[in-house]
């Protein structure tokens, strides 16, 4: 219990700090970096729960591929600097209050679920890569194929929306 408990708190603090970093940092770059830290923290949680395959997939896909995509998106966008507009204050306050309310409501709703209070026990086989592979190619074959189609549609769509052979309009002609 001891080591798991301590690691849980360390990783949770890290995840919380990273999430706050995404939320409050002024520069987008630091948001992206916080996001990568968050992904690592969540992968750490996965490893604590003995789901190593998911942890490594999370790192590979989200921190590795998606984070890089975000960085490149940022490079493209920030190379043309413009002043960032600030949202109106009362809208901000309303947003903060709304999400805090959501947190309270969710937590309160679930805290009543006393019958589900279950202890996690470390050390089971289901997170192992061969078991997941077996499941993926037998029982979950149909969702697997559907997710392939989903990725393919994103590929096609990205080509459709990004590559256009017509010249882009003059940025000055866009009235704001």
């Amino acid at each position: 219990m001891g080591a798991t408990f301590i690691l849980f708190w360390i990783l949770s603090t890290l995840a919380f700090a990273a999430a706050m970093g995404i939320l409050v940092s002024k520069k987008e770059l630091y948001s992206v970096l916080s996001f990568i830290v968050l992904v690592f923290a969540i992968s750490g949680h996965f490893i604590l729960m003995n789901a190593q395959f998911l942890a490594i997939v999370n790192i590979l896909v989200v921190a590795g591929a998606l984070g890089v995509m975000f960085l490149y998106g940022l490079i493209l966008v920030r190379s043309h600097r413009d002043s960032e507009q600030v949202k109106i204050l009362y809208m901000r306050i309303a947003g903060v209050i709304a999400s805090l309310l959501l947190l309270i409501v969710l937590t309160a709703a679930v805290s009543k679920a006393s019958q589900n209070e279950v202890v996690l026990r470390p050390g089971t086989w289901i997170g192992h890569v061969d078991k997941i592979g077996e499941e993926l190619f037998s029982r979950f074959f149909v969702p697997f194929v559907i997710s392939g189609l989903l990725l393919l549609s994103v590929l096609v769509g990205t080509v459709v929306i990004i590559i256009n052979r017509e010249p882009a309009p003059d940025p000055k002609s866009v009235t704001l």
């Binding site: 990568i36 190593q52 395959f53 490594i56 997939v57 790192i59 590979l60 921190a63 590795g64 591929a65 984070g67 890089v68 960085l71 192992h128 890569v129 061969d130």
Partner: peptide, 17 residues
């Protein structure tokens, strides 16, 4: 770990940063 190869690939991939 049973995912050693994937782990190495992941660390390699992180080199892009």
């Amino acid at each position: 770990v049973d995912i050693g190869v994937l782990l190495i690939l992941a660390f390699l991939w992180l080199g892009i940063y």
